[in-house]
Structure formats: C-alpha cells, structure tokens
Design a protein around this nucleic acid. Structure first.
Lengths: 151, 151
DNA sequence: TAATTATAGTTTAGCATCTAAACTTATTGT
DNA sequence: ACAATAAGTTTAGATGCTAAACTATAATTA
C-alpha cells in the first residue's frame, strides 16, 4: 500500500504504536485455550478465574466478580463450568448462608501452580534481557498504567 | 480470606502480579464499546479494524487479517458490519480481481482520528508522570514483550 | 491449451464470553 | 414484623471468534 497515504505518521507517537501492537498480541493470546497441569484444555477466562481463587485460597463469588471485573452472573457461569471440570468446589460461608466460598480442588491447584510457573518463567525471560534498574522502571510504568486504567 | 492460605506469596513475583492485574484491566477495557467522533458506538474489535485500515490508508482483507491476528472469516464479518455503519468501503484491487481493497469513509476517518487522539492523550498523560529516560526504557520493554509474544 | 492446484474472500454453524434483568433466598435496618 | 438490601442463579441475547465448506479468480504444470 502507499505509505504516503497514511493518516497517521507522527513520529512522536511511536511508543503508542508499540503499545497498540502489544494490545493486539494480548487479544490474540487471550483467545487461546491452553493446558495447565493435567487439567485438560483451559480457556483464558477459566485460568483467570482459577488464578483469582488460588491467590486468595478461598473467595466469595462476589469478591471474585470484583477482582475479575465482570458481573456476578458471568462468574456464576464460569464456576459451573469449572466445577464440572472438577477444578473448583463450592462450600458454605459460615457467617452468611447466602454466600458461597469457592476454592480449588487438588486438580485446580495443579493448574494454578502450572500457570504461575509459566508466569514466573515468562518474567524470568524478560528479566534476563534487562538490567535490574530497567525492570524496576518497567514495573513502575505498569503500576502507572494500572492506575490510569483503574478509572 | 486467610492470607496465610495463599498458594502464592513469592515476593520475587510482584512484577508478574502487577502485569496480571494489567491484563485483567485490559480485558475489561476490550469489552467496552466507545464513541469516537460522531460515528456512534464502536466496539473494540471494530476500532482495532479501523485502526489497521487507517494506518495503511487502504489494505487487503488478507493483510488486515494478518495484522489483527484473526482469520479472514472474522475480518469478512467485521467489514460487513463496518460497511453497514458506513465507516469503511470496499473497492477493487487492480492487480487481482479476487482481492478487495478496504479503506475508510470520511466518517471512518473521523473515528480513526478521534481514536488516535485518545491514544496520544493517554500517552501524554503517561509521559507527564515519567522522565524521558523512563519512557525510553518503558518502550524498550514493550518492544521486548512484543518480541516474546510474537511466537 | 486444458487440467490441476492455490489463493482471496464469503458464508455458515457453533463455541466462548459477557451483560442485563428477572428471580430466589437470606440478611439487615427501622 | 416488614421493607429494603444483598448474594447468587438463571435466561435471553449480543459480540467475536474459529473451522470448514464454498465461489470465483489466478497461477502452475502437464
């Protein structure tokens, strides 16, 4: 295509463009089911849910919805599927009989750990190509981004 | 919940955790339709498509699919919708009568520009809270990430 | 040249993910 | 006790994607 025809060729905006490509990559990743442990194929939404549960140990549907940034209805549906796959289990919450505590089964914990291991390896790979100082600045930037997007 | 029960409490992994939260934020963002220009409500997939077209000026279905990292079928469906919204138009490609060139209508260009403007403002906001050096390191890290995820 | 193979794009069926809203059941506040 | 609120479930419908079958054109090869 004719590159002179581009609507945008602002050189100041190169960083924004890299970020844009990263978004597309992440969108692609977030569509790809994967195997974690021997739990079979797990979709991105499922693994995020497992991550949220595993991080807390046990969590209410409510809290999980807030953590994931989705409605309680969405979480309810996910938990049905994860329970069917025997990755999570429900138990009652002593202080409020309406509430339901979700926790990981042994199989779920395996998947959780395999996923964490993957994260750690990924991060190690990044660390191996950057200095300690660069990593710290990167993390600071990520925190800033998190702050902006919070709203 | 009992924080001592956490499956993961590795302090070395804090950066990975921030990155995880960023992913969740982005997932949430990427579900939210927005208004750009006076083109009405535009979904994330639609705006990514418009961005890909606008950046090149005119592009083949084929190339667009590669750029977005989706199948040609997905692009075909998106273009149908964007054409119905009068944001893009099809024209024939001189060298190959099978191929179809997609470009933006005036309304599409408006949406494109409004979206770019948003990106630039977002990036300016980030820049205002970081030093020039920090920005450069951040961009380097983004490039690294892009490299990793390419595979 | 005629037949085969490859390529560009479209269409369709089906899956995954989510929301909004209606619903059930339990809790809280007056 | 009663009304309002809160936790979770269910359902219908939107979105966004893939895989695979399909049409039409182009390129290759026998």
């Amino acid at each position: 295509m004719d590159k002179n025809n581009r609507l945008q060729s602002n050189p100041m905006n190169k960083g924004s463009h890299s970020l844009g490509r990263l978004f597309l990559q992440l969108r692609r990743l977030e569509r790809q089911p994967q195997n974690f442990g021997n739990a079979g194929s797990i979709t991105p939404s499922e693994i995020h849910t497992i991550e949220g549960i595993g991080y807390e140990g046990a969590i209410l549907m409510n809290e999980l919805a807030t953590h994931l940034g989705v409605t309680k209805g969405a979480v309810s549906q996910l938990i049905v599927r994860l329970e069917a796959k025997q990755l999570v289990m429900r138990s009652s919450y002593p202080h409020d009989s309406r509430a339901i505590l979700i926790s990981l089964t042994e199989k779920g914990k395996e998947a959780y750990k395999a996923h964490e291991e993957m994260h750690i390896q990924f991060y190690d790979q990044l660390r191996s190509e950057l200095s300690q100082e660069e990593i710290e600045i990167f993390e600071k930037c990520i925190e800033k981004l998190n702050g902006f997007l919070q709203k």
